[in-house]
């Protein structure tokens, strides 16, 4: 069942011996010990497990790890600069205190980063659309929207 699979995560290549059908999320969390992407539904409905796949925000909870070969995956961890400085989106979430429990924060930050790469000046409707896949039960979306607006300002 197991096979060698090579994936590139946060700029580093990893050769892993895994069941190639394993959803990417489990490999990121358990083999690579990353905490950013989170298990929320395993159904691609809630966005807790978002990662950037070649710069596009995608859920990682169903996609088999073998299909990720040759693609560049970035997780929440990979957004922080090597010197430890936060990405402007991460920093904006801290400044706006855009979290309560924080479980959705990974999906929100990843989605916002992808959005701001594609659209440097999103209006509020575009921000809402960009965050639509990510559920937040604490209901901090108004703060998240403010954080994305702030980050957009910083990035310009």
């Amino acid at each position: 069942m197991e096979a060698d699979v090579t994936i590139e995560v946060n700029g580093k290549k990893h050769m892993l011996r895994v069941d190639p059908a394993t959803p990417l999320l489990y490999v990121l969390r358990n083999q690579l010990e990353l905490n950013g992407p989170k298990y929320g539904c395993g159904l691609e409905q809630c966005g807790s497990c978002m990662v950037l796949m070649d710069g596009v925000a995608m859920p990682s909870c169903r996609v088999p790890v073998e299909s990720m070969q040759g693609r560049a995956i970035t997780t929440l961890e990979g957004l922080t600069r090597a010197d430890g400085a936060l990405h402007p989106v991460q920093q904006a979430f801290v400044n706006e205190q855009a979290a309560q429990c924080g479980y959705c924060l990974n999906g929100m930050v990843i989605s916002a980063v992808a959005l701001l790469q594609a659209n440097k000046k999103p209006d509020e409707a575009a921000i809402r659309e960009g965050l639509q896949r990510v559920l937040c039960r604490c209901s901090v979306q108004p703060r998240v929207i403010r954080a994305v607006q702030r980050a957009a300002g910083t990035l310009q």
Binding site: L34, N35, E77, A99
Partner: peptide, 13 residues
């Protein structure tokens, strides 16, 4: 919240 954005181990998960 900074621990969260840095994806530091935080949750029971």
């Amino acid at each position: 919240i900074e621990q969260m954005v840095r994806a530091q181990p935080f949750y029971v998960q």
